[in-house]
């Protein structure tokens, strides 16, 4: 299991190239992607910009407020299709807040207000007439603490498709989703048992199966392994790497090694503390993971990844 991940790290460049060549379809967002990515491409010198995966979500000057409190300031970054993008940074830097902007989970907090553009396939998710329910069916989410429903394993996976009015064979879909989440073999004989009978790591994989059962485009993961032991963590990381073939994954993590192991690109957030004690998060640096961890552009990033701060 570890071998595979290490191999992956060693061959990031090649793997990406292969994937990029495989992905030749051109959509409207490609155009936006390449133009928006020009400056970044120069900096990371990652070859021809045309070879990059298309941008699926583009954040433009995103600001988040809770009432008068300015939680996140001016975040702009592109998320590319079929890549794993990691958000790292110290506590309170707003990385989870930014993640929750991407599927409008912040709507659940009444005082939260999002300014700026979150463009998904070029459509502003905060535009008028956008139904957060539709957004969340396309942009799924896995949470920090495993949160299966107090229902059977089967019903957990079938929940999303059922409410979306899925017409196909539910049994097949449940099997397929559990299989993709690398859980099928462990639970195939106890689908009717409560999800709470599973271990923490299994529960989190069940939550991943539940999230991908609705066939989303993008899966957001908010510190998905922080409540798990190291073995379960590796399991989840390996799973993320496998899921990358089909899904765009954005992961928030406290664990820099984890970001280094699994992600293609990393965004480093930091927090400014004002005189009145207000803490505002901001994006410090965003580039390919290998670059960010070896030759970061900003001193602040280097201080953080070398453990001098945070």
């Amino acid at each position: 299991m570890t071998d595979r991940i290490e191999t992956h790290l060693g061959t990031t460049e090649e793997g990406q190239m292969a994937q990029e060549q495989a992905n030749t379809s051109t959509t409207a967002s490609d155009v936006a992607a390449t133009s928006a990515e020009d400056s970044d491409a120069v900096r990371t010198s990652g070859g021809d910009p045309d070879d990059l995966n298309p941008v699926i979500i583009e954040l433009e000057n995103v600001n988040v407020y809770y009432d008068d409190f300015h939680a996140v300031s001016d975040v702009s970054l592109p998320i590319r299709e079929r890549e794993i993008t990691a958000f790292i940074g110290p506590s309170g830097c707003g990385k989870s807040t930014v993640l929750r902007c991407l599927n409008r989970m912040n709507d659940l907090i009444e005082s939260a207000r999002v300014e700026g553009g979150v463009n998904y396939h070029g459509v502003d998710l905060y535009g008028p007439n956008i139904d957060p329910v539709e957004v969340r069916r396309r942009i799924g989410m896995v949470f920090q603490k495993p949160n299966p429903f107090p229902k059977s394993i089967y019903d957990n996976v079938a929940f999303g498709p059922k409410i979306a009015g899925y017409k196909g064979n539910m049994d097949d879909l449940v099997e397929q989703s559990l299989d993709r989440a690398a859980l099928w073999d462990e639970v195939k004989d106890k689908l009717d048992e409560s999800a709470y009978a599973l271990s923490g790591g299994q529960q989190q994989r069940l939550c991943i199966a539940r999230a991908i059962a609705t066939s989303p485009d993008v899966v957001l993961m908010d510190e998905p392994a922080s409540a798990l032991d190291p073995i379960a963590t590796l399991r989840i990381e390996e799973l993320m790497y496998e899921l990358k073939a089909e899904y765009t994954i954005i992961i928030v993590t406290h664990n820099m090694q984890q970001a280094g192991r699994v992600s293609d690109r990393t965004a480093f957030f930091s927090v400014d503390i004002q005189d009145d004690g207000e803490r505002t998060g901001r994006l410090v640096e965003f580039s390919e993971t290998a670059t960010l961890f070896t030759t970061p552009e900003k001193q602040e990033t280097e201080d953080y990844i070398t453990g001098r701060f945070g």
Partner: peptide
């Protein structure tokens, strides 16, 4: 009923009525 269950439901694209009927009520 823990907020995390509601979040799970909303995260799967359930609206409020579905969340109340299928998640909060049974729990």
């Amino acid at each position: 009923v823990p907020l995390s269950l509601r979040e799970a439901s909303y995260g799967l694209g359930a609206n409020k009525a579905t969340t109340v009927r299928k998640v909060v009520f049974p729990a």
